[in-house]
C-alpha cells in the first residue's frame, strides 16, 4: 500500500464501509480494489475492527444512586404540577 493511488483509496475506506462514499468515488475505489490485494486485505481487516467495536459491550452498570432517583422523581413531580 505504498503507491499514490493506494494512498488515495486508503483515505476513502471508512466512508465506503459506512455507505457514505459518493458514487463516483465508490466506482473508483471498487475498480482499484479489483487489482490491489493489499487494499482488499486492509479493507477486510478494517471492517472486522469496526464490527468488533459494534459488538463491544461495557460491564453492566450499577443501580442508580438514591440521590439521583430522588432528584429525578422530584423534578418530574415538579414539572407535572406546573403543567
Amino acid at each position: 500500500m505504498t503507491d499514490r493511488h493506494c494512498k488515495r483509496i486508503f483515505a476513502m475506506l471508512s466512508e465506503y464501509l459506512d455507505d457514505q462514499l459518493p458514487v463516483k468515488n465508490c466506482r473508483e475505489l471498487e475498480r482499484h480494489l479489483k487489482g490491489c490485494r493489499p487494499c482488499i486485505a486492509f479493507l477486510e481487516s478494517l471492517k472486522t475492527t469496526v464490527e468488533a467495536c459494534r459488538g463491544y459491550k461495557a460491564p453492566r452498570a450499577p443501580a442508580p444512586s438514591k440521590e439521583v432517583k430522588a432528584a429525578l422523581l422530584a423534578a418530574i413531580q415538579r414539572s407535572h404540577r406546573s403543567q
Binding site: T2, P38, A41, A52
Partner: peptide
Amino acid sequence: MPKESGAAAPAVKSWEVTPEEI
C-alpha cells in the same frame, strides 16, 4: 497507513480473525 507492499503484502492477509473472535 501500512507500508506493506509487494512481497510483504501477504502478511496483511494473515488477518483472519472474525469480529466474534476478537
